[in-house]
Simulated assay, not measured.
Amino acid sequence: MSARLDVDVAIIGGGLVGASAALALRGMGLSVALLDKGFCGAQASGVNYGGVRRQGRPREQLPLSQRAHAIWPRLASLIGIDGEFLRSGHLKLARGEADMAALEAYAATVSDQGLDLELIGHNDLRERFAWIEGDITGASLCAGDGHANPRLVAAGFASAARRAGTHVLENTPVTGATRNGAGFALEAGEGLTLRAGALINSAGAWAGPFAAAFGEPVPLSRIYPSMIVTEPLAPIMTVNTGMEGGGVYARQVERGNCVVGGERGLPLADIDLSRPTGDGALAIMNKAAELFPAMRHAQAIRFWTGTEAAMPDRNPVIGPSGTTPGLFHAFGFTGAGFQIAPGVGEVLAELVRDGATTTPIEAFSIGRFSKPPSTSDRTADGSGADRFSEPQNRGVFT
């Protein structure tokens, strides 16, 4: 059965970025269709660790992170649930003097960004956070950071967008997109034709082909973060905790379960899917038990992993297309998109409506991956036109 839908904005990808953009656009009075090949929030947005942190982000991400920081306390009024958001603080631990020096250098670098970081020495750490053991030299505390439940938040934004009037189209993969006159024509699902004045590519790990079809290939790869949740325990952790330089990270929810991450899952034959590994799960729990003695006899009750898009410089792609008017990208958050996603949604809505945003995003331009055409890329007339010059206005995706 064929169907036709006309909207102001079409969004490919119903994760937290796409859903928050849809909600913001509806608040501006624009008509929106949000399309997902599966269920909204079922991929990276809904299966991540749930850290809501600014600390540790590159300086160029902090204005965007601060914008999102102001949104999280308003979740209940914005989407109807608080998403179990808790401003617990985020404690980054240092193993050794080199890690502590790195925390000190970072604090100095971002001192003007409003994070209010507190550097904590070894003795003070033992006194204030007695539940942490192991060879820890010190730490950095960002008291305003916290954590939330990604399964609730990701679906909550999509539900709020639907209630606001967004056409939420799940199990509706986009199979073709064409720049058509003043807008775009999309083919999706089984016989759906969609016309839109603007198009947002927020397809996560599946965003690469969409960008490439419009003449903007990117070096996107996939990662598969793996998580564990324990049985409910007596109160242990008072803050969301991570390690300088990477390693185990952990938080405890109000009902007592501890969520622990720090390893990677393995992709299956279908790289859209992945699974945790037994060795990885054991390694995570052993690391957690070393740091948090109260977890040493905890039962792990659930394991999971998910598929996330990663960029080589660990910064996302956010902003307008460099080849196609009306096309906007937002993907490649490299495992750190949960906290900033609501801010990204507002930025995308501003870009669509105004053509500009009040938040600096120049560092995230997709143009940073473009390169001048080589001799082999030049057309027969020697003009040097991009080899993607024709597909930039028409894309077909499988």
Rank of each mutant, 00 (worst) to 15 (best):
V9I: 03
A10P: 08
A22E: 01
M28W: 11
L34A: 01
G38Q: 08
G41Y: 09
G41F: 04
A42T: 10
Q43E: 15
A44N: 09
S45M: 06
V47P: 01
G50Q: 02
G51R: 05
R53L: 05
R54T: 11
P58T: 13
L62V: 11
L64T: 02
L78W: 03
L78I: 06
D82C: 02
F85R: 03
A94V: 09
A94G: 03
R95H: 13
A98R: 15
A102M: 06
T109N: 12
S111T: 07
D116E: 14
R128I: 11
G138H: 04
S140V: 15
G144P: 02
D145A: 09
H147L: 04
A148R: 05
A154R: 05
F157A: 01
R162L: 02
A164I: 06
G165Q: 10
V168T: 05
T178I: 12
N180W: 13
A182P: 09
E190R: 15
G191M: 13
G197M: 05
A198H: 15
N201I: 12
A205K: 03
F210D: 06
A211M: 15
E216Y: 05
P217A: 14
S221R: 14
R222K: 12
Y224C: 07
S226A: 15
M227R: 00
G242V: 00
G247F: 05
Y249M: 11
R251T: 10
Q252F: 13
E254Y: 12
E254I: 12
V260Q: 07
G261W: 00
A269V: 12
L273T: 06
L273N: 07
P276V: 07
G278A: 13
A283T: 15
E290L: 08
L291C: 08
L291Q: 06
Q299D: 11
A300L: 01
F303Q: 13
W304D: 09
T305Q: 05
E308V: 02
P312D: 14
P320M: 03
P325G: 07
G337P: 03
G337A: 06
Q339I: 00
A341N: 03
E346V: 10
L351S: 02
V352P: 05
G355Y: 11
T357G: 08
T357Q: 08
A363C: 03
F369I: 13
P373S: 10
S376P: 01
R378Y: 13
A380D: 12
A380C: 04
S383K: 08
A385L: 14
A385T: 08
P391F: 12
Q392E: 11
G395Y: 09
F397M: 02
